[in-house]
Amino acid sequence: MIEKTDVVIIGAGPVGLFAIFELGLLNISCHVIDNLDKPGGQCAELYPEKPIYDIPSRVSISGQELTDDLLAQAKPFKPVYHLSQQVEKIEKLESNEWLIMTSVNKSIQAKCIVIAAGAGSFVPRKLPIKDIEHLEEKNILYAVRNKSILEGKKLLIVGGGDSALDWTNELSKASNVTLMHRRKEFKASPDSVSKMLELEKDKKVNFLLGQIQGIEDLKNDKIKVITKNNEETENFEVDYLLPFFGLKMELGPIANWGLNLDENLIKVDTEKFETSVPSIFAIGDINTYPGKLKLILSGFHEAALMAQECFKYCYPDKKNIFRYTTSSKELQKKLTSI
């Protein structure tokens, strides 16, 4: 089934969320796609607790508060969020509209695409070890998609954050699990940590101090992981290695859409914030133009100007009458509808 909307916004960070609002004021409906499982982008993923001091009128606001407020501000316009998925392909239809296809085979038809993807989408950080690509997704898993393949197997989980601890606790029910971390202190929820330590005491989980040094393919569906703690090395033969070193940002499939790029940034004009491909816009940290500053407030401004141009694609026969939220009865009705 193909879902239909006016605009697809790629990226649910602060600038993508504010774009819903600016487009909404012009009666333009939006679907928003993000690879994370929650809206907020870097604000919610990297620094939810850290204060931001340069949002106009907000003396200090945390990444999470900013996200929550932007979500509330966008809510009257009933945006549809498609989370935990990445846009993989876009296709121009005969109607001149776009067909946007995501990594979970969702298809959305829209008149415009707004790329508000920041520094790209968040993907697991891979091990910086040479010649292990052929083992990734086979013996080396950066995410657990299918728990059942791990049952009864020997696993080495590496990391000290929530993902490492939560999977250690969960997978130890049905697999032989060793957790390795560089120190016996964890940056995970206290519940998960105490549960893991309990499992270790009951000998249901092995804990090991150390770091990964190398990986060898044993060619029998197993791998040898060479680990090091201070100067001591130890080898582990395991079925699966699960490294959890947080997330990094990658431009991903956007790089292949034929847009004019400048070192992983998308070139736009400063009147409409349109890319080299008509009806595809780029706003926020992902775009570049002379004088660009990577600030959230610049992205907000870019969203407002982008929306003016989107209006022409969405309502080609209508005149866009510029109105203020302070004076327009129609806008006020919409904004106070919930």
């Binding site: 971390h181 990964i212 070193f245």
Partner: peptide, 10 residues
């Protein structure tokens, strides 16, 4: 120190 947990070969 906590952020270094996400680094390799510390």
């Amino acid at each position: 120190e906590s952020m270094l947990d996400q680094a390799f070969d510390v």
